[in-house]
């Protein structure tokens, strides 16, 4: 697969950044109900990793799924509509920010719970003798969930075609990794004989290249592999719940993935991309806002019966 050019990388990251910033900007206007977990600062991960996606590959995401969804190719407008509780939303307003299902993209808000599911999807691909693989995203906080290790064992035993991507943004909600994560993250995969690569970077090109050996390993049906990206989120865990040291945030802001990638482009090219993304974001939110609300009459009983 040829690497996306620098402009495509920049555009994809900027789409996520501007979508997420717009969500946070619009929250006080009361357009959204509930909460959200933004991906600001981590864009290079989804974009760098999912640039390797092939048609029919499966992506399993988590509560912080907007970036993964947009990098997967999901529509900005239907994601905005989902967040606004519109009938045109990805899941008709039933799922909201954390529960997105579209084509071969699945997200759920239970940390770790989706990991065995992702492995089951990979096992299905193996049983079907297909050539698809699963990209399973998790954060450092999810490494506290026991079912993850059940899954690593099962996936390694069965040699399932799955790539576990750990986005270590150094905080599980408000708790720094030093208070909740013993040892080193890669060792948790090595214990199951799962090969792992790590990178401490916010450079989309570096991330994209660093994951390649693990992808090759998975695609050649040697079984699961893992990729750990040490990253940082610039925005709060959800909306207004940030207790981190502002100086620390400012320090990481100097490694913002967007300017790093922008520097590889001519200024005119940057501006052109920025303008077109601005328009796309404005259109998406405007259209979503004018879409009809999801109606209570659309609610159905699961299993076709009242419980």
């Amino acid at each position: 697969m040829s690497r996306p050019d620098n402009a495509a990388f920049y555009r994809r990251m900027l789409r996520i950044r501007r979508f997420e910033e717009t969500v946070l900007d619009l929250f006080p206007r009361g357009l959204f109900y509930g909460t959200t977990h933004t991906y600001i600062g981590q864009e290079a991960n989804a974009v760098g990793v999912l640039a390797w996606l092939r048609e029919g590959d499966i992506v399993v995401s988590n509560h912080r799924c907007h970036g993964h969804f947009l990098a997967y190719g999901g529509s900005m407008r239907s994601l905005a509509a989902e967040l606004m509780g519109r009938s045109t939303g990805v899941c008709g307003g039933r799922g909201g920010s954390q529960h997105i299902q579209w084509r071969d993209f699945y997200a759920n808000g239970i940390l770790g719970g989706t990991v065995p599911m992702a492995a089951g999807m990979a096992s299905t691909e193996k049983l079907k003798e297909g050539d698809k693989m699963v990209f399973s995203f998790m954060g450092d906080g999810t490494l506290g969930e026991g079912v993850v290790y059940e899954t690593l064992n099962i996936a390694a035993l069965g040699a399932f075609p799955i790539l576990f991507i750990v986005e270590n943004n150094r905080y599980a909600q408000s708790t720094p990794t030093r208070l909740n994560l013993a040892g080193e993250i890669p060792d948790r995969f090595k214990a199951f004989g799962i090969p792992v690569e790590s990178i401490d970077s916010t450079d989309v090109v570096e991330i994209h290249e660093a994951i390649e050996p693990m992808l090759k390993y998975v695609r050649e049906k040697n079984g699961p592999a893992a990729f750990v990206v040490h990253t940082y989120r610039f925005a709060p865990h959800s909306k207004g719940d940030d207790s981190r040291d502002p100086e620390e945030i400012a320090r990481y802001r100097t490694k913002d993935p967007l300017p790093i990638q922008a520097e590889r482009l001519e200024e005119a090219n940057q501006r052109e991309i920025q303008e077109s993304v601005e328009m796309e974001v404005a259109d998406a939110f405007e259209q979503a806002e004018s879409d009809p609300a999801a109606e209570p009459a659309s609610l159905t009983s699961p299993l076709g019966k009242s419980q």
């Binding site: 699945y106 065995p116 492995a119 089951g120 990979a122 079912v147 899954t151 064992n153 099962i154």
Partner: peptide, 23 residues
Amino acid sequence: TTPVSEAGIVGVGVGMALRGLFP
């Protein structure tokens, strides 16, 4: 046959079912 991992194997079953199998 599976490891002693009830949550894990039911989760794997969910994934298989979502992808068209009958686990």
